[in-house]
Design a binder for these strands. Structure first.
Lengths: 263, 263
DNA sequence: GAGTGGTCTAGACCACCTT
DNA sequence: AGGTGGTCTAGACCACTCA
């Protein structure tokens, strides 16, 4: 994402002072964004510039920006400034394609950077998710994913070395889905996905270059093959403004059976 | 949710002053919650009480509380206080059951309150979602849903009067899913669901008795019957800490067909 | 090294909720 | 009427980023 120049501040100051000052400022900025004057990626005037230009306390300016951040209109790169958010990417968990595929389909540029890849002993909870014994070896991979050069999610993957010997020797900077299928013949047949809004924890926030406490979406995925074995267990921490989840559910093709819990 | 009494403040003040003050306070409160000292529903000491007891500025106290709100550990009832959040309810969009059913299954008490129900002319975008002509009549129902007496979501429903004549004469304070099925024979066969984190807009925030700008989850659902007709179009605004979405996807039972867009 | 956001202080007034 | 959070002001210092 080539960075457009910082937006110029054009007075006059906002009208409509009937409302709360911080909302007036919010509207002032929002209007420039939705009006196309400040396109995606534009760096906003600094908090101090806005403070002086709009005649409000910096704290009030900040409230407006935090509001806009929550709405997904702007985001911040920790300590380097506020920027106009690009559109959300659509994620459909009901499709077997991975990140690299669905992002590209939406005419955006996906990128993956492996942060770490190691083999460690699965501790209690991890072991349970993975379906292996406690203390058994487990791959642990951490990756950063970007869209148009902008970090949008950190993921942590656990996988069973017994199923994928030598996995860490391959490049992990691409589609893991395809790697597991093409190299190891792993076919994912079922996925259990959980998600809930969150604040980004410290470690993940750092990798995303945001301040801890930025709103995020926590997404977890357990992929199973036809034999019920866990192909991978995956945790994703998304910038909340980067994703819109879309699910298509079809009741007609299924009977009355309930999901069986398999551990 | 019978309200437990306000929590008593017990000094000593938090240790570990190595970290940022607002995070120290966050940890102090979080420890009391996860430790069971302040159970779900408990009202926290007021900001001013915490301010005096912990020796920090009220703004700093507030930062800690907002952090905890983002994490889903506490919530606020606008202007009446901060409270310990109850556990999230699990929502599985891949199940045909409605709110009343899945909440009850999780041993919580669901409740529905109809805010308004009327017939109006579908405007452009609504008409498109509903699959009717612009200006055609449309039901518009607004409901508040509660779990254990706590408002957790506002929903707005559009439906086609041609398919459900006299719908508004029925009580809408229960399961609409069942009403449509039992009274009109409507069988939902497919659903399109979208969701993304958001901040609660003014109207919805008011109904939930929270301040606008509280974090939320925006969830949209288009229900279709076997003939491809839109049974209902539904928008839900959730308190973000009330819900965890769980999706179970099964690739084995479907061929290679892609979803067909039907309008 | 200059500029940025991140945090903190010590006040203040208001609208609203509760009693 | 008194207590609550919601908002605002006018400062300050710091850690970090960027050029």
């Amino acid at each position: 994402m080539a960075r457009p120049p910082r937006a110029a501040l054009k007075l006059p100051a906002p009208e409509e002072s009937a409302a709360l000052p911080y909302l007036v400022i919010r509207d002032y900025i929002a209007a420039r964004i939705t009006g196309g004057e400040w396109p995606a990626g534009t760096q906003l005037p600094s908090e101090r510039q806005l403070h002086e230009a709009l005649g409000r306390n910096r704290g009030t300016i900040r409230d407006a920006l935090l509001q806009l951040e929550g709405e997904g209109l702007v985001y911040r790169q920790s300590r380097s400034g506020w920027f106009v958010s690009p559109p959300r990417v659509r994620y459909d968990p009901a499709r077997p394609d991975g990140f690299m595929t669905y992002v590209a389909e939406q005419n955006r540029t996906p990128q993956t950077r492996t942060l770490s890849a190691e083999t460690l002993k699965a501790s209690g909870w991890t072991a349970e998710c993975l379906g292996v014994a406690q203390g058994a070896p487990s791959y642990f991979i951490r990756r950063l994913r970007l869209i148009d050069q902008r970090p949008v999610l950190v993921e942590q993957i656990w996988a069973n070395p017994a199923m994928f010997p030598g996995l860490l020797e391959h490049s992990l900077d691409g589609s893991l889905t395809q790697l597991l299928r093409n190299q190891y013949g792993a076919e994912v047949v079922r996925m259990e996905i959980d998600m809930s809004p969150c604040l980004l924890p410290e470690v993940q926030a750092e990798a995303l270059r945001v301040v801890p406490g930025t709103p995020g979406l926590y997404l977890t995925r357990r992929s199973l093959d036809a034999a019920g074995r866990v192909v991978e267990y995956d945790q994703e921490f998304w910038r909340h403004d980067a994703i819109a989840v879309h699910v298509n559910v079809d009741f007609s093709r299924r009977g009355l059976q309930r999901r069986r819990v398999r551990r």
